[in-house]
Nucleic acid binder design. Structure first.
Lengths: 219, 219
DNA sequence: CTATATTGTTAGATTAATCTAACAAAATTG
DNA sequence: CAATTTTGTTAGATTAATCTAACAATATAG
């Protein structure tokens, strides 16, 4: 069974993997906020336990077992976030830190009961998919708001970043998942977009913000 | 802030303390399932951090700070157990292992929200008092069933042992907190007691069991 | 009150997870 | 393509939590 530390490395590896499934030692070190030698030695441990493939001076790759175990940690994290929001009344900006701790609990019944109480949700409060019990993760292909054009009607469906600061920024503008946005215009100069929704008639969103908003085109 | 290991030592110290508040190294070692040298070195660490008083070859004593922090860990444990039973539908025999992990989560809001959702309970599912936010613990003086006499009507209010096996034994006889027991007779030879309650007309409980059942005299 | 048993301590080793310093390989860039 | 920068590795140290072996103090029991 993975230690908390190992679970955290698995999660990062899963999230950092590129199309080929590869992760560089330096990326992993910066994500985990540890030095490269630390990653180097941990990577050897993870390999010994069958979670990844490592060759000197090459990027590492999770094994199928590694991917599965990583997805199961992510499952516990996202189920927890959803439980905190839906059953305990927390705001979506408050749940990450708590879930970061709860995800390491080893008690299948605990997470199964959460799942059951919520009616088996498939996405978390930030629109990210919740892996199933076998660690399979449903691929969702949302569009970034920054790739949309004036005139489109879109529905806010997910985020590429869920930092507290960004979530508080969204809260401040009454932006939450499910909201429909009408794209009024797009500024060619700085790629900012003017949208209207609810009682907000013309809210300007910077490119930096638009990139992080995932949407589904409604019409 | 206490590590998980330190939190576990504090809990054990709190629970093992005698009337004078003293705990022997050997008791602590057996409770924690570690060797005496391990306890010896941990005790020095705990002292350095202000949680206890230690002098060579003497039993150790928690400081007020140590008692408070221990009680706050116990608070998280018991709130969790109550939440699992009352809000998540777990049986009282299933919650200890889960709470043993959840108690180490550092997220005051999480436990405050549980507390609030349950309406600020003062006892856990096994009848043990839940320390308050300041670590103050309400003293309850129940009687052991083994000290009761034939003819008494008592209400089951707590347990001195909450092992899964004992709880399953009680479940098997429909014994749960709040139930009123009429003491039919007490066998002088082996101290076993015959009780009646619900649709159980004459259930015999051994001394070993009676000792672990805490009751309040009804009449 | 001495002998024995129990309890507690010290010394030194081990493992997991981390670090810095020094070095080596690979990638980039003029 | 050689020089430089970036990335990765090795060696060796550190800290927390644990262990065993050896020894010392205290308690117990004839």
């Amino acid at each position: 069974m993975a230690s908390q530390t190992e679970e955290n490395y698995l999660k990062s590896l899963f999230n950092l993997a590129n199309e080929k499934g590869e992760v560089n030692i330096s990326e992993l070190a910066s994500q985990m906020q540890v030095s490269m030698p630390t990653v180097n030695s941990m990577v050897k441990t993870l390999q010994k336990n069958g979670w990844l493939i490592y060759e000197k001076y090459k990027p590492v790759t999770l094994t199928p077992e590694g991917k599965k175990d990583a997805a199961l940690v992510i499952r516990k994290h996202r189920l927890t976030e959803m439980f905190l929001v839906n059953k305990m009344g927390f705001g979506w900006e408050e749940v990450h830190e708590i879930a970061e701790q709860v995800e390491h609990i080893h008690a299948p019944k605990f997470f199964e009961r959460m799942d059951e109480m919520m009616g088996y949700p498939t996405i978390d409060p930030h629109g990210s998919p919740i892996p199933d019990k076998l660690g399979r993760i449903q691929e969702i292909n949302y569009l970034s708001l920054s790739d949309c054009k004036a005139g489109q009607l879109v529905k806010l469906a997910g985020l590429t970043n869920s930092s507290t600061e960004f979530l508080e920024f969204l809260n401040g503008r009454n932006l939450s998942l499910g909201i429909e946005l009408t794209i009024r215009s797009k500024e060619a100069y700085d790629q900012s977009i003017v949208v209207s929704y609810l009682n907000h008639n013309s809210e300007t969103l910077s490119e930096k913000v638009c990139e992080k908003l995932l949407v589904k085109v409604v019409e």
